[in-house]
Computed example of a mutant assay.
Amino acid sequence: MKLYKIETEQLINASIEDCWDFFSSPKNLQTITLDNMSFEIQDFDDKRMYPGQIITYTLKPLLGIKINWVTIITVCKENQYFIDEQRFGPYKLWHHKHFFEPAEDGRTKMTDIVHYALPFGYLGRMMNSLVVENKLKTIFDYRYNKIEELFNSKL
């Protein structure tokens, strides 16, 4: 199994508490996801994030094909980090860590680290090179820009 990694960092003009309130709420996933992916939360218990929380949603990441995705919050330490993992979905493995640390001038440094693997062996590796890697870059670039708009464009 070939394991891939994506790592992003962003300085956010908000306190850790404000960042945590926004990013730890599944309701805000749609806000930071490309509109053309048709992201919709199907089910979650509408509680603050906690270990064991299950979130189900649908999206259309490629060619308008609808997929179901189920993630679970495996670890959660308020105002510091949380980890979500795919239980059912398009990846053989999806492990996404979100870290929040104090930065200068009251800002917050947010770091995302994703490890993922695709099914289908050699075919999956080809799909990553041809499609998936670029699609994930587009998704994370969009998130970066949306977060800039939401938090960092205020004067």
Rank of each mutant, 00 (worst) to 15 (best):
I55R: 10
D45P: 06
Q42F: 00
Y50L: 05
N28L: 00
L63I: 06
M37I: 06
F22I: 07
P26W: 05
T33C: 08
Y57W: 05
P61M: 01
K47C: 02
Y50A: 09
N13G: 01
E40K: 15
P51Y: 07
I32V: 15
K27T: 10
L34D: 12
I65P: 08
K47N: 10
P61D: 07
K60T: 09
D43A: 12
L34S: 14
I32N: 05
M37R: 11
E17Q: 14
I55K: 12
T56V: 04
L63C: 03
D43Q: 12
G64I: 14
P61C: 05
L34H: 13
I32T: 07
I54P: 01
T31G: 00
I32L: 15
T56C: 08
Y57V: 03
L62N: 14
G64T: 12
A14C: 11
I41A: 09
L63A: 14
F22Q: 07
T58G: 09
S15Q: 10
N36M: 09
P51D: 07
Y57E: 02
R48L: 05
T56G: 04
F39E: 10
L62W: 09
K60F: 02
N13V: 01
L63T: 04
K27P: 00
L63D: 09
Y50R: 13
F23Q: 04
C19R: 07
L29G: 08
R48W: 00
M49S: 03
F23L: 10
Q42T: 12
Q30K: 15
D18F: 06
T31K: 15
L34K: 15
F39K: 13
F44K: 02
L62G: 10
W20C: 13
P26N: 06
F23N: 03
T56N: 11
L34Q: 15
L59T: 08
D21W: 08
K47E: 08
A14M: 06
L29E: 13
D45R: 04
K27W: 00
I41E: 12
T58P: 05
N13R: 08
I16W: 01
S15F: 10
M37G: 07
S15P: 11
Y50S: 10
F22R: 08
A14G: 15
T56W: 00
E17F: 13
D46V: 00
S25V: 03
E40W: 02
I55G: 09
P51N: 07
T31M: 11
C19T: 09
M49F: 03
D21H: 12
F39V: 10
G64C: 11
Y57C: 01
Q42S: 13
R48T: 03
L63M: 13
D18T: 13
F44L: 03
S15W: 07
T31N: 11
D35F: 01
I54T: 10
N13I: 01
M49E: 04
C19A: 06
T33N: 08
A14Q: 10
